[in-house]
Write a protein that binds this DNA or RNA. Structure first.
Length: 110
DNA sequence: CCACTGACGAGTG
DNA sequence: GCACTCGCCAGTG
């Protein structure tokens, strides 16, 4: 079996994000076993840009904004469109993390 | 090996 | 809410 790179783990976590929910880079990184390496999560997703194998559009930064907007405005449009289509609410240029924050069972406070 | 950059986060003002 | 700084690690020249 090929050695699992940090990217593979990040992709695996992103795939687990349910529809209608969004996760932050830091959250994905932490779940992937890379706490504090939020940048790696973003780096991994960047390499995935264009691939539909992973719901990358469900990953936003801690501010609820689409970091992709700073890199590819057109791509951000697609991301926002897909999210809204899945039921994710937007407040201006920001995602309503208050309602759409993904809470994995390993982090469920209930 | 060193310097710079990058889909980030948290802290500070 | 926004701008700036520092810390984090990988990729590139």
């Amino acid at each position: 079996m090929p050695a699992e790179t940090s990217y593979d783990r990040i992709y695996a976590v992103v795939r687990r994000i349910p529809s209608g929910k969004v996760a932050t880079y830091g959250q994905v990184a932490a779940l992937a076993g890379l706490p504090g390496r939020a940048r790696l999560a973003g780096y991994a997703l960047h390499a995935l840009a264009g691939s539909t194998a992973v719901p990358w559009h469900r990953v936003v930064n801690a501010q609820g904004k689409l970091s992709l907007a700073a890199l590819s405005p057109s791509g951000a449009i697609t991301q926002r469109l897909r999210l809204e289509r899945e039921g994710v609410r937007f407040v201006g240029e920001r995602v309503a993390l208050k309602q759409c924050a993904w809470k994995p069972r390993t982090a469920r406070a209930r």
